[in-house]
Design a protein around this nucleic acid. Structure first.
Lengths: 225, 225
DNA sequence: TAATAAATGAAACAATCGTTTGAATTAAAT
DNA sequence: ATTTAATTCAAACGATTGTTTCATTTATTA
């Protein structure tokens, strides 16, 4: 119900302002976007921002809260709460890790959501006045810890420290394509969004990389030249 | 000699301004820093920026040119120009890849350079008015292509497309610790810079991850439980 | 030492920033 | 239909932005 209340606030002109502002914030940074830029692109008066949000900073935090909700990856916690999982089965562990990577590639890079959702979310780790907001502590750190816990269970021979590195590997591999998107697209001669076939290859690349690293790769592949 | 001329411009009050402005740009974004901020922190008059650089935008490009020079990774090209290398030797290939990763961990994350050098350099891939400057095309893309070429030679069984993914893996794994530094340090309870022991572990993690992925890992490790 | 160039400083420029005001308009409720 | 609330609008607020001016100081050269 708290969720329903939250979602109600994300409707109408208020939502339009969040979507417009968020996209601009993601591309140009909060300080690179003026309220007049937002108002013009959204087709509303400059006073609308202060009418709906009180201040630019409030709007800023709202855009962050919004995208953090949109791209959240709940699979990790769902796995941790499922006590029927047999982590002794390598097949099970493989599927779990495949799922973790897939969810993030899907939420961060595919056209399930606009790219600027994840781009703005990543900015919250970096840039004032976004960073150090509660939304970071309520999303990034818990999800990171959950990710480490799942990896620890799937690869018990690895220390918790090692699993932290693997968690950062998953996040880093994917995040790079988000935050460095403009440069990467130039390097790859892409004008539109990442093609689905490209994302499919990337997803398989990351899954294979993690599975090999955690010694969970199917044996047949280990020995083939 | 062109280099010498360039270096001469990086001295005195001019260099102090570049260093001061660059650090602020890296942390707060170009639009998040005013000329008065820079002047105050640098202990000079507000007119100094326009006296030495003509405009804020010129100063901005100069800071970028400066850090791109500082953190450049010339090892890749040096390898490509060395025609005595035997890429049939797995030992040689292993050492090459170790070197490539080490150079980047050293230049981007260690205390060889201030962290904001690499942070600002990464911003050039993302954020106007830094992005799409010539320095990106003259550094990021050539180094990326060189990296792909070296990986192709070391792992000839992988397609060029695959090697591109591996190159992005190396860059992504390391870059994540640069651009997401504030969030990561909170997650890891770090107040200072990344400890040398941590970077050593990270470096070994990435090298191992890439070598396993490219099937270059020493056989003894492949079979040990 | 005198003359010249380089560097610095206080003050102000127009432009833009986030924000506020209060009237005009639209929608909802009685 | 009338009242009330919600929304939109043009205009202006003071503060801050990047930049310029010009006098002053410092350093260099003749």
């Amino acid at each position: 119900m708290e969720i329903e209340e939250t979602k109600q606030e994300w409707s109408g002109k208020r939502l339009e302002l969040i979507e417009t502002a968020g996209q601009l914030f993601a591309d140009f940074g909060v300080n690179g976007v003026s309220i007049r830029d937002i108002a013009e692109k959204c087709g509303v008066n400059v006073a609308a921002v202060n009418y709906y949000f009180g201040s630019k900073e409030n709007l800023c935090m709202e855009t962050l809260r919004y995208v953090a909700w949109q791209v959240r990856c709940p699979l990790t916690k769902k796995i941790l709460e499922d006590h029927t999982i047999d982590y002794n089965s390598k097949d099970v562990c493989r599927e779990i890790i495949k799922g973790l990577v897939e969810e993030r590639v899907q939420n961060y890079l595919s056209d399930k959501y606009p790219m600027w959702y994840s781009k703005l979310f990543l900015r919250s780790l970096v840039e004032p006045p976004l960073r150090f907001e509660n939304v970071v502590f309520q999303n990034f750190i818990p999800e990171l810890n959950a990710l480490v816990e799942v990896l620890s269970r799937c690869a018990p021979r690895n220390s918790r420290e090692k699993c932290m590195f693997w968690a950062f590997s998953i996040l880093g591999e994917i995040s790079f394509y988000v935050f460095a998107e403009p440069g990467i697209k130039i390097a790859l001669n892409l004008t539109e969004k990442y093609p689905p076939a490209f994302l499919q290859q990337l997803q398989e690349h990351i899954i294979s990389l993690i599975l090999k690293g955690l010694e969970l790769k199917e044996e047949k592949n280990l020995y083939e030249s």
